[in-house]
């Protein structure tokens, strides 16, 4: 399992352009959209500024992007022979699936480490507690594993890259807009509120927001349980569907 994470780090060492280019979109959200919408004061975010409110949401959206598109790597490895070869090694299939999912967490953390300084520069006030910060990175890492498992599941029936690109977008955007990333859940229409309740992204954003921005940890245990259940379910589904990928 760990070796898959090492593989990911080594790939990043050689080529980081993807991380940089994927950082552009979230930075636009924070630098342009945040201050403009904040100026309107249309969205009730309590006593924290709007840009500060959406920073964790945008951060999670971009790390989720990284994880969901991680399935592309799996599709690529299926097209080449790497998956076949991995199956004929003594490593267990489940370790391969979970290891690969977790490896996407490594990419996600690097993504976060690019966005956070930009947010700091434009004046977002983070909770100044290194323990909180590290914990939030850890949560991003865990959640990325679950989202990457979704993408492995999707890759098992979207066997070409083109199809995968399309479906990837179609998964992320609803998750993003129907979560508390850009606005509090309570101002949404009732139907969307219910969706937000089962949307894993809401819990991840809530956890990271409480650790990075508000410092109010009262919801954290619930968030963590939700993320753990999400990861577990997705790992099981991904491991089962992994068989289909290779045939």
């Amino acid at each position: 399992m760990l070796v898959m994470i090492e593989l990911e780090l080594r790939r990043l060492k050689h080529d980081r352009t993807e991380i940089y280019s994927r950082a552009i979109q979230p930075i636009l959200w924070i630098v342009v959209y945040g201050p403009i919408m904040g100026g309107v004061k249309a969205i009730p975010t309590g006593d924290i500024p709007y840009t500060d409110f959406i920073t964790p949401g945008v951060l999670i959206q971009s790390t989720t992007f990284v994880s969901i598109f991680y399935g592309l790597t799996i599709v690529w490895e299926r097209e080449s022979g790497i998956l076949k070869k991995l199956l004929v090694t003594p490593a267990s299939r489940y370790a391969t699936v979970i290891g690969r999912s977790m490896a996407s967490g490594v990419r996600a953390i690097f993504q976060a480490l690019i966005i956070v300084p930009v947010a700091l520069l434009i004046g977002v006030k983070f909770v100044l507690n290194p323990l909180y910060f590290v914990s939030s990175l850890f949560i991003i890492f865990l959640a990325s594993g679950g989202f990457a498992a979704i993408s492995i599941f999707v890759a098992s029936f979207m066997k070409t890259r083109e199809r995968f690109m399309g479906i990837g977008q179609a998964i992320i955007m609803p998750l993003f807009f129907a979560s508390n990333a850009l606005y509090p859940v309570k101002i949404m229409p009732p139907l969307l509120q219910e969706f937000a309740l089962v949307n894993p992204m809401s819990y991840v954003v809530d956890a990271v927001r409480s650790l990075m921005i508000t410092g109010d940890l009262s919801n954290l245990p619930l968030d963590l349980v939700a993320i753990a259940i999400f990861d577990l379910v997705m790992f099981v589904i991904a491991s089962i569907s992994f068989r289909k990928i290779i045939e």
Binding site: S80, I82, K85
Partner: peptide, 28 residues
Amino acid sequence: VSYIPQEMSVWTDISGYENLLIYAKIYG
């Protein structure tokens, strides 16, 4: 057993040595 598929079974975005290192770890 060892198996080499028809297509290609190494990662192209890392070096040859790193491929061997990763496989050595996978093989335990």
